[in-house]
Design a protein around this nucleic acid. Sequence first.
DNA 1: AAACGGATGGGCT
DNA 2: GCCCATCCGTTTG
Length: 199
Amino acid sequence: MKPLPKSFFDKPTVEVAKNLLGKVLFHRTAKGIIAGRIVETEAYLHMDEASHSFKGKTALNAMMFDSPGRAYIYFTYGMYHCFNIVTNKKDTGEAVLIRALEPILGIDLMKKNRKKENVKDLCSGPAKLFIALGMKKEQNGSSLISSKSELRLMQDDTLKRITIASAKRIGIKKAADKKLRFYIKGNEFVSRKYHDKKI
DNA sequence: AAACGGATGGGCT
DNA sequence: GCCCATCCGTTTG
């Protein structure tokens, strides 16, 4: 598997959100390597009311305005963190939220981290996968491109052809109609199997 | 299979 | 106060 180059991320965000499907996210932790295939993403765009970056740069969302290929991590609902990848040109404030992974490596570590046994429940949501991979909020802003990075993204050449589906983003009220959620059609590890029935 | 509410805390009006 | 890019256990159809 080859690492994704910086040019992969320095592209329009919707394109990156789709291209990330099927790629493998690696986390090198003290206890071992944990990895999963990205099966669901959401794009957050410039002038997008649902995006944290909509009202401009603040201390909290500053990483969204940094260079492509970095991690943007935010704290939410008083107890969870979610992991995004910064995309596009610097200062546009765009990013891709990673919403679900198919566990590949370090599944026992994931089970410990999540205190859950069902493999389908380990990474089927943005806060779940953050916990499963043993990520920390201090990794906000870290580069995913450097060979020294604990967090890395890889191309999987063995992956069969996939079909990409799009749908409305989850859990937002503003700009709720935009179909900026992307997932691998038919994949068992997406966060919601019956997603398109609901508003 | 869907709906609901509690947990939990930082930031903003 | 109220909102929030969530999760989970419980209750209801």
